[in-house]
Design a protein around this nucleic acid. Structure first.
Lengths: 247, 247
DNA sequence: CATTTTTCTGCAAATTCTTGCAAGATAATT
DNA sequence: AATTATCTTGCAAGAATTTGCAGAAAAATG
């Protein structure tokens, strides 16, 4: 990794999280802490960040008191961390939008080389930041309620894809399957599951064993489910029986 | 392999991967690293790439790296204010991306009822916030350097549109016409101008009477030009002679 | 105030860069 | 066609950069 690249990555991480630890960056990028510290000092000299003992802060730190108002952000970050290892180089990956997916997009390792398909503007935006990821946007008409592309164009584009993974944030899952409450979104999600070899669903535990009005698919279409809880939690018994891997 | 050929190859690789190592190129093309380095330096002198220790980066990479705050934000806000009145209800409008366009998107009156087409993720995102605007995203493959959709898919989608207005942020304009420096972006912008009845170009005054390498169109294709200056400024004399309305 | 963590300093190894130079290729000129 | 000038490329040696490491200094923590 080139020095400039590394510093750009650091800057981006600081923009994203408002603060970072030298030690975290060190293990993340796989360079010594000295190097990170020198980078941070250089960036601080350039007035791009604020260097503090043990790490650095975003210059607009004051605004970070407003914090992001993402519900259960910590859980979602945890889920995101569990997904990342499943993504390998050269994969074709279909994803939905949703805050958990965004969180995932942000922590994808910088050297990952993959193609991401999505109909979500925020997700596409995040993927596009990444140095080695190819982004394909699916569809044309954008639904305001869900901030994703919907309609026949999106569906037909998705159908034309043979993806390795479908990574999907969901709203409700129970023994009968995955459900949602937006007709247009349902269509898109169904098409995505069809188009991918494996389907990974992401959900905070709170949504497990709940259901909504519209069915997306049965449990047999799901390969892996990821929540913030430990996989051994007894909440997942019935899902395991359906052959779903819990992470 | 000829020098020019080699440099074209290098440029293409950088466009493709956003970054390259001198050593990789050396083994790839089978010339000494010195030669690669000299090539990179030449390309950097021509402002086509960013040379860094150990290799080079795409120019766009650097701009997103510097990002911080918007250059001449005040001017751009002023320009945005001048555009808004030109947009009427029920219009079909093609727009590019760019910070000026984003600024415009933010101040669109809430009761405006129109359909916006764009290939820019940030622009689409802004439009999607608006209560009464319909957003159509153009294209699928997203170029990291420009953050817009590029390629045949985008072009053909644009060609299928008959829009009332094309509102375009530009990089350079002089007596010969509008120019830019990114081949893929050129294609998209050209298609947009073709597909729209009227073309409005937005530019900060600093860019007026400058030019870049690649031609988008002549002045006769432009209907209106908007800058932050007063329309009576003598900078615009020659443009007025070409029948362009200055605002 | 003792312990742990982080930072600073100097140093060494590896890599990359610069520079001058020479040989070959290409272009220009007579 | 011959000669001269210019360009291109590879090589080598010294300079500069980058990075990791070790030990001392400084800061944070309880």
């Amino acid at each position: 990794m080139l020095k400039t690249e590394r510093q750009a990555y650091i800057l981006r991480q600081i923009d994203l999280h408002n603060r970072i630890l030298s030690s975290d960056l060190s293990t993340e990028i796989n360079v010594s802490e000295d190097t990170i510290r020198r980078d941070l000092n250089e960036l601080a000299d350039m007035d791009k960040i604020i260097k503090v003992h043990g790490g650095a802060l975003s210059k607009s730190f004051h605004s970070s008191f407003l914090k992001s108002d993402v519900y259960q952000a910590d859980s979602k970050r945890l889920i995101a961390q569990k997904v990342v290892p499943l993504i390998r180089n050269n994969m074709f990956i279909l994803t939905t939008g949703g805050t958990t997916i965004i969180e995932m997009a942000r922590i994808l390792p910088p050297d990952l080389n993959a193609t991401f398909f999505t109909g979500s503007i925020p997700a596409a935006h995040e993927y596009a930041q990444h140095p080695n990821i190819e982004v394909i946007f699916l569809g044309d008409k954008i639904s305001k309620s869900s901030q994703i592309a919907v309609g026949g164009e999106a569906i037909s584009k998705i159908s034309g894809i043979k993806a390795d993974l479908c990574i999907m944030g969901i709203n409700a899952i129970d023994e009968t399957g995955i459900t949602d409450n937006d007709w247009e979104v349902i269509q898109v999600k169904r098409a995505m599951i069809q188009a991918a070899e494996k389907t990974i669903v992401l959900s905070i535990a709170e949504k497990v064993n709940t259901h909504q009005k519209l069915m997306i698919c049965g449990l047999d279409e799901v390969d892996t489910m990821i929540t913030e809880l430990d996989p051994s939690h007894n909440l997942f018994e019935s899902y395991k029986k359906h052959g779903i891997t819990i992470l």
